[in-house]
Design a protein around this nucleic acid. Structure first.
Lengths: 209, 209, 209, 209
DNA sequence: TATGAATGAGAGTTCATTCAT
DNA sequence: AATGAATGAACTCTCATTCAT
């Protein structure tokens, strides 16, 4: 049915429209201070309409993470596929993938953090929650596999690849959060790129055989 | 007058009583979902009483950070003072100090994160804000000095010590946040200690000359 | 579109519904003791709804004055326009206009008084504040012009018409406040009309040439 | 008993100390915005102490009126006693007495107004309420007697002296309130004295035979 | 008598969510 | 499907008053 399809497409477009607006508003004000009306206004819709596409505020928020995680997955997939790169180059590629994801949506880590709250998680409908955990597990797996390959070929030290994956991810999020923090308090200088470079440099030396 | 002193002591004890209660409540529910009434109930006081000791909710929250930062400073000071330790031992000592701080109050990182919000910062009375930034700057300086000492003696690679300090801190907070996150979603297994060990191991190798 | 108009009309009706309720509640309890919930209950609405129509309690209160001042302006305009009246008749006409305004809303003077507080004034959005000062200035100007006309034609003594206008207004509000006061303390006998008659009689003799 | 007397005197002095502080605070902030703690601080006492001397906030407030009314009575008594004054001079003397009372405590009229609220009156213990009504009745009687004397001697028009007394009082309070109002909104020019002069001039002409 | 810490009811206001249109 | 007015529970914070010391 062409009509059904069109409806479906239009529905999807509306969802995106809302997500884009939500991203902007949440980024600017943080979760608690953003109101559904703010988002509706930004999306040029009425508050009621938001509830036709998202069960509640938490679920709308969670959907942002989903989008990001999808992008993250794609980027890591690419890194994994590239076979003609040396181990140090792999790590640089990971760093760049992560940095791009951050650029694509600086909110990502803050999202991840907000999701942490168990009360928020309980408000999510389970399919969405599953999607999110599934995707984030997948991202970590991809990272782990990259290290596993290298570890198998004795490129990397012999640590549990899943742990190493967790650590890369933690290092990245930690640096982003901390640099943002400093920017908030001290001033406007943004050293994120530089600090990430140093951090991944150290990390690369640390995991090299 | 002994009376003045006793009053002073009692006042301080009350403050602590509130801080302890606040820590518990905030840890469990996060900042936004915790109400002043929750905290009052936990402290077995009336809501009004909280305002005799803290100007508002934000300031109560910020006070938690202060306590932690003080403890962190002490621990790092100790690490710095110990002169008969090898560079790798220094890093282990730092890891342990940070881990102890985390144990002392698992909220610390979440605090730091919440403080980031500029709207929160604006609600703090400036002496408190200054204390916090002062203390956190001091902690980072201590870390940097530890690396500077080692770097001078060619124990560590030649990176800007301030950057390295930021990275240690970021790595630590990143790992804590992420492991907490996983614990929240997946289950109750707590791999924090193990992951931190691996992370600092890699880090130590990465900064070693 | 008829729909737009209907919405507009309904919105206006709601506003009136709230204003009427507020008038009743404020009259009975005074400003401080009246709660927004009281007013909502009286208007058979929820507290939240009040805030869709009025920014805050002060502004709701101020709106009552606005309504009254508009009515006062119309009445004074009429008095001014009537050209075939003798000076003493003018003064009687003013008295009657003022008395009608009082009947229309006995709150008027209490409003004026509450508005006096600078803290209240600061809570008003400036368009509202401007409307109020504009209207009240206008009322006084109308009064002044009535006396000016008469003064020009040597009907009235040669005093600054603006001062005379202030005095009429003061005399009127003073009598109303005082008679209300007495009624409150002593009992229920209402001598307002009689006292106003005497007061304006004396005033008329006092300004006559 | 000398001791009893001294205690009594000290008690009275404390009361005055509180009243003076309350006057200052209420004048500055108005009734609702003044807190018992404000007053206690101004009186250099603790909040609890206030309740040893006044049953509650309303009663403290009412006591201010009492003081003023006492002063007003004294001044009007003086005016009445002076026998070698012409009727117009009497009116000038009244005006001056009233103006002095206003200077002595500009709050007086605002007090009177606040007392009007029936809810406030109900909070007063009846001896205090009786004192106030007694004193204010007495003031009005004094005014009435002044006009009665003159009226008897055909100095003044033949109106009910009690009404005329009410009108003088109303005129005075009305002018004060209105000039204060204008000062609050428009600026800082204070025309009270001038306006009172014109007002009483007109009044004098109006009641003259 | 005087204190002042503690109380706790209650205020104004916000905002996620619903539902008649 | 979309609206947006209405809801009402819940929040933070204030302050008159009490009472153990």
């Amino acid at each position: 049915m062409g009509i059904q399809e069109r409806k479906q497409r239009e529905r999807e477009r509306r969802r995106q429209q809302i997500i884009v607006a939500a991203k902007r508003v949440f980024s600017e004000k943080g979760f608690s201070k953003s109101t559904m009306e703010d988002i509706a206004r930004e999306a040029e819709l009425s508050p009621g309409t938001l509830y036709l596409y998202f069960k509640n505020k938490d679920e709308l928020y969670a959907s942002l993470s989903l989008r990001i995680l999808q992008y993250l997955n794609i980027r890591l997939e690419d890194v994994k596929k590239e076979t003609d790169t040396t181990p140090p180059q792999k790590i640089v590629a990971i760093k760049e993938a992560l940095y791009d994801v951050y650029q694509f949506d600086p909110m990502i880590l803050i999202n991840m953090f907000h999701l942490q709250s168990s009360e928020t998680l309980q408000n999510l409908s389970s399919p969405l929650l599953e999607d999110i955990t599934e995707l984030s597990r997948n991202s970590l797996n991809l990272l782990a596999e990259i290290f596993e390959d290298g570890s198998g070929r004795k490129d990397f030290i012999d640590k549990n690849p899943a742990s190493v994956a967790d650590i890369v991810w933690s290092l990245f999020t930690g640096v982003v959060l901390w640099e943002e923090s400093k920017r908030m308090i001290d001033g406007d200088k943004n050293f994120l790129k530089e600090t990430l470079d140093v951090a991944f440099d150290i990390f690369a030396r640390g995991v090299a055989k």
